[in-house]
Design a binder for these strands. Structure first.
Lengths: 197, 197
DNA sequence: CTCGAACTTCACAGACCAGTGTACTAGGAG
DNA sequence: CTCCTAGTACACTGGTCTGTGAAGTTCGAG
């Protein structure tokens, strides 16, 4: 039960080479885009041969999926920690907005899942299920907190909070608005106040 | 002054070949992604040679920019028409949300500008200026309508409406939520009601 | 009749792409 | 000693990528 022995989030055990491959791939995929980065580059920058990369991950598509999964796990851990620390259900519903600002400071290229969606039009791609699942998860977190807070229509309101959250992610990067997270939080609070008034 | 003689929006005059190239490129770029579509494919599907494509557009990057510009012009025309038909400033501020549902019915892959942003990490790419400018334009449209409506802080509220709008675009496609546009409109109306109360 | 715009054909360059086959080495555990 | 895991080295396949060069065709307007 030693939690997180290698300090990289709750990613399953990886060999040292695989760890380096995943770290390098994450940085390059996020920074330059998935299609724009070749496996040769990833292998070279990891100090590993392409053979090792394919022995560990099987294909580029699966490496892409591993990259998105690891990043998603880091994000979820952050959100869950904040939600668990919240004093009441309303603050718990706002927890994702509380951590969003800090997260975006290290994520100037926006949401990796949204960006990946843009590059992976095939609905059968293994990463696509992961992408929709993450959005569903966040929406459910909103809904559960709102239901516990006793707002009239938690499902509708959860959908609206999700809109604000995704909007903040994309507006921060695409529209180059550094205040997007704060604006989303205050809008969310306004909607909550309005609904519970 | 014959308006829009070829029914393709106010795109500048193009030769017949260039018109077909742009139409085909728009469809393929939007549907499959920019990096995933080669100029050979575009030329072949347009019934045109690669030579013609390069004679007309100069480079793939400029063709990409032309695609985004044409699509943006169609979207802006739709919004402006709805805003001009609005009976009062508040309805004018909601106009983008009114047309969003219908627009998304023909745009199941989400916002072409957001998708393009994901694929074009280089800030110097000619399309990047176009992308940020479009978001700035929409925000200004919100702000002007809200100022005329006399809400207390039109600038802040305009930013929040933009969040809802971008959030609806991305949630509709990425989170596969067909009700995103309606949810965004009702959230926007709630924020407006709250602000003007 | 001539000029020019639009377009064709086709070969070519030079780079990059994902992915595989074969043979080899270092180190730890049973 | 022997087996297993992780990794190395490296050539190679078959394909795609953007972009260019050179020469020829079609057709309408002046």
């Amino acid at each position: 039960m030693t939690p997180d022995p290698d300090g990289h989030g709750s990613t399953p055990r990886l060999t040292p080479g695989a760890r380096r491959i995943l770290d390098v791939a994450s940085e390059l995929f996020y920074r330059r885009g998935i299609h724009a980065v070749g496996v040769d580059t990833i292998a070279a920058e990891s100090g590993v041969t392409k053979r090792t990369l394919y022995d560990r991950f099987g294909s580029k598509d699966e490496l892409v999926t591993a990259y998105l999964r690891a990043r998603d796990l880091r994000w979820r851990a952050l959100v869950v920690a904040a939600a668990d620390a919240a004093p009441d259900p309303v603050r718990r519903a706002l927890a994702p907005f509380d951590v969003l600002g800090g997260w975006l400071d290290t994520s100037d290229r926006g949401c990796s899942l949204v960006n990946a969606y843009a590059e992976l039009p095939d609905p059968a791609h293994p990463a696509r299920a992961l992408i929709t699942e993450e959005k569903r998860w966040l929406r459910e977190l909103f809904r559960a907190a709102l239901a516990e807070a006793g707002v009239p229509d938690p499902d509708t309101l959860a959908g609206q909070l999700l809109l604000l959250h995704e909007g903040a992610m994309v507006t921060f990067s695409v529209a180059e608005d550094p205040g997007a997270a704060a604006a989303a939080r205050s809008a969310a609070a306004a909607l909550l106040g309005h609904a519970s008034a």
